[in-house]
């Protein structure tokens, strides 16, 4: 079975863990415990193919961000999450994406832009059009989701798997990049 390494990124408190746990375990985590790093595994069927997703739920807290480079290197697909109720979480994503592109050293990285907490329409400060404009600029998929109301949660991960399949078809996945890459350390 093919494995997919997915990394969930975004500022603290936007609902990365809530989305991941909702997808993997089907429950909504009400309590907020800042994540350090958690990994989850879940088997799903996408386009008739069994896939094993290895999802890394990362920290949004500033102090834990020094380790980002490492997991960005290992990740194949990225979920960039902001909360529609906090403008700053939306603004932070630009830097995050640039870091991913820098670490991956390519412009074509499977990615989904996610505006979470869309059940809190009353507290919305980031417009849907802002989100889709940014996604357009990133050239990636855009979804507004709610981990609480189970809106579009599975779609994030299915879309990402399809993107990864498109960019590197399942045939031979044994280090296709080695050789062409030089590392300076």
């Amino acid at each position: 079975m093919r494995e997919y390494k997915i990394v969930v990124l975004g500022s603290g408190g936007v609902g990365k863990s809530a989305l991941t746990v909702q997808f993997v375990q089907g429950i909504f985590v009400e309590k907020y415990d800042p994540t350090i790093e958690d990994s989850y595994r879940k088997q799903v069927e996408v386009d008739g193919q069994q896939c094993m997703l290895e999802i890394l739920d990362t920290a949004g807290t500033e102090q834990f961000t020094a380790m980002r480079d490492l997991y960005m290197k290992n990740g194949q697909g990225f979920v960039l999450v902001y909360s529609i109720t906090a403008q700053s979480t939306f603004n932070d994503l630009q830097d995050l994406r640039e870091q991913i592109l820098r670490v991956k050293d390519t412009d074509n990285v499977p990615m989904v832009l996610v505006g979470n907490k869309c059940d809190l329409e009353d507290e919305r400060v980031v417009g849907k059009d802002q989100g889709s404009t940014l996604a357009h600029q990133f050239g990636c998929t855009f979804l507004e989701t709610s981990a609480k109301a189970k809106i579009n949660v599975n779609d994030i991960f299915y879309d990402l798997v399809q993107q990864i399949n498109k960019i590197s078809p399942a045939t031979k996945q044994k280090k296709p990049k080695s050789g062409s890459k030089c590392t300076l350390l």
Binding site: I36, E62, M67
Partner: peptide
């Protein structure tokens, strides 16, 4: 690392990074 006065200090970052490593060991 999560003390409020360490939010953006250098030592807070160091403790944060080591904490991530410790969390991995723990896992």
């Amino acid at each position: 690392a999560l003390k409020s006065e360490n939010t953006s200090t250098y030592i807070g970052m160091i403790y944060g990074s080591v904490l991530v490593q410790e969390k991995r060991s723990f896992d």
